[in-house]
Amino acid sequence: RTAGLLLAVLMCGFWTVVPGLLLAALGGFALHLPGRAGACFLLAAESLMCYQLLAAKDLCAESMKVCRSMEKGDVEQARGDVSMIVGRDTAPLDGSGILRAAVETVAENASDGVIAPMLYIALLGPVGGYLYKAVNTMDSMVGYKNDRYRELGRAAAKLDDLVNLIPSRLTGLLFCACAALLPGFDGRGAFEVFCRDRFNHASPNSAQSEAACAGALGLRLAGDAWYFGTLCSKPYIGDDRRAIEAADVRRINRLMFGAQLLFLVLWAGVLALWAAALAL
């Protein structure tokens, strides 16, 4: 446990100091460029740094491999595709289980890989984004409740729970709003299931976006899953209103991109109001 705490401190320190020093060096270089070239250079550099932190494109690309394999009827290929993006054992999954795993992964990682880094970038700049990703990646690597990682990953897991408290709930609410705005989704169902099932997970954050997704799509997600050869009992999220289909992977990706766009619109509104208040 002490080693795990030291790991968390070192990684958080490293991924705060190094991006900060890099930005300082880039800022110093930009000062020597003529006219507006320096500001444009620094904006491009910061944009490139922030781009590396967002996973929406990769989430869509990898989950759509599962969708296309299932549409072709190639269950074994889909099983291999989904094994690349989930932490659970995929051998026991049937076709429906493979699709549920893909949908759940996009729904959960829309918070970890998209909305959360965007929020920390918006509040703290690129350094805040890299610090968040350091915490989140540590949790993904060592934050498991098994004999090997239970003590080592405890600090990373608890820290990840803390930094995701607000982003996970924000993602769930953005899903609900997008489900109400976009055709083909159930906005009312998304909000009802979000309010009812968002704590149906051992983690205080993981079910937040999954619950909104389940309600928006009219699906029942989660339930028991195998991890490292051990069956883990989990409650269901959502209502079994219809059978899952390959097209649901496309739908959850639409919902994810919609939430990303809505966040940008809302943050632009916040900045506009802030600028107007400062001008008064």
Rank of each mutant, 00 (worst) to 15 (best):
Leu33Gly: 07
Ala272Ser: 13
Met138Gln: 10
Thr171Ser: 14
Leu221Phe: 10
Arg196Ser: 02
Tyr236Asn: 13
Lys65Val: 11
Trp226Met: 07
Ala225Pro: 05
Ala212Asn: 07
Arg1Phe: 13
Leu255Asp: 04
Lys72Arg: 14
Arg220Trp: 09
Arg1Glu: 14
Leu280Gln: 05
Val142Cys: 06
Leu255Gly: 10
Phe191Met: 06
Arg241Ser: 05
Arg148Lys: 14
Tyr120Pro: 05
Glu76Ser: 03
Leu271Tyr: 08
Trp267Tyr: 02
Ser96Asn: 15
Cys232Asp: 12
Val106Asn: 10
Thr137Cys: 07
Leu54Glu: 08
Phe185Pro: 03
Ala101Pro: 03
Arg188Pro: 11
Thr137Arg: 09
Ala134Ser: 07
Leu53Asp: 01
Thr90Ile: 06
Gly97Ser: 14
Leu59Ile: 01
Ile244Thr: 08
Arg88Ala: 11
Leu5Arg: 06
Phe41Pro: 08
Leu119Gln: 00
Pro92Ile: 03
Thr230Val: 13
Ala37Lys: 05
Gln260Arg: 15
Pro183His: 07
Ala122Asp: 06
Ala207Asn: 09
Ala30Pro: 01
Asp94Leu: 04
Thr90Lys: 00
Glu62Ser: 04
Gly258His: 09
Ala24Pro: 11
Gly73Met: 02
Ala24Asp: 12
Gly229Met: 09
Ile166Ala: 11
Phe228Ile: 05
Lys65His: 07
Ala122Trp: 01
Trp15Tyr: 13
Phe194Arg: 04
Thr230Lys: 15
Lys57Asn: 01
Ala45Gln: 02
Leu278Ser: 14
Arg254Met: 01
Val249Asp: 01
Asn164Leu: 12
Arg148Glu: 08
Leu31Gln: 15
Ala247Trp: 03
Ala102Tyr: 02
Ser206Val: 06
Leu124Gly: 13
Pro117Met: 06
His32Gly: 14
Leu280Cys: 08
Leu173Met: 12
Val82Trp: 10
Cys178Gly: 11
Glu108Val: 10
Gly97Arg: 13
Arg220Thr: 11
Leu182Thr: 14
Arg254Val: 06
